[in-house]
Amino acid sequence: MANYAIITDLNRCTGCLACTVACKAINGVDVGSFWIKTLRIGPNPIEGGSGQYPDVEMYFLPVQCQHCEHPECVKVCPTEASHIREDGTIQIDKSKCIGCQFCVMACPYGVRYLNPEERVVEKCTLCEQRISQGDLPQCVQQCGARARFFGDLDKGVDNFEAPAHPDDPGTQYDEMIKTRVKLKDYVEPYKPTDIHHLKNAGNDPKLMYLLREGRKWRE
């Protein structure tokens, strides 16, 4: 049907935390819990540099469920509460979750946690309630640097989309969020080798990070 994912252009991400906050707001994530976090990676010394400022570099890394191709969380779930949806996203059927937390242990990225009130595990749903209606995930919609793009991997990452402010001055917010620009057309040129994934533990993470040559991807 589809194979949804997100790509984040780390050369554009400013670490504003808008994705982190927007996600909490739209999904009602409790205080102290996060479905997406924005980490600062660095400052780390540039290779061949003095090891001191200004020979350093850093980037911001939004981390959430990677909606893996071969998710270990789904494999270890005894009730199939964690499952792969037809659109390729990993979802949790909370009514089936027994709270054994084996998925929390199996996730290589530590993005799952036990909701202490509901006593079930939860994590990023890729805004299932929005994407099933043709909208963008809220973290993509609200990205302050227009660094995040959402789309179907089967249609190619170049076609991933994000809203963008039209050239016409005075365009209102409601109108703006209906616009769509494609990754390839909007961001600075990139090569396939510039696209990275979080460390793979056999789970084949699908979410992607764009970090162009000249900046070292650290994993």
């Binding site: 089936k96 979750c97 027994i98 079930v120």
Partner: peptide, 13 residues
Amino acid sequence: LQHWERIFNGFGH
């Protein structure tokens, strides 16, 4: 288990 009563609800993957 946080919801052991649910083991009768699909347990067996």
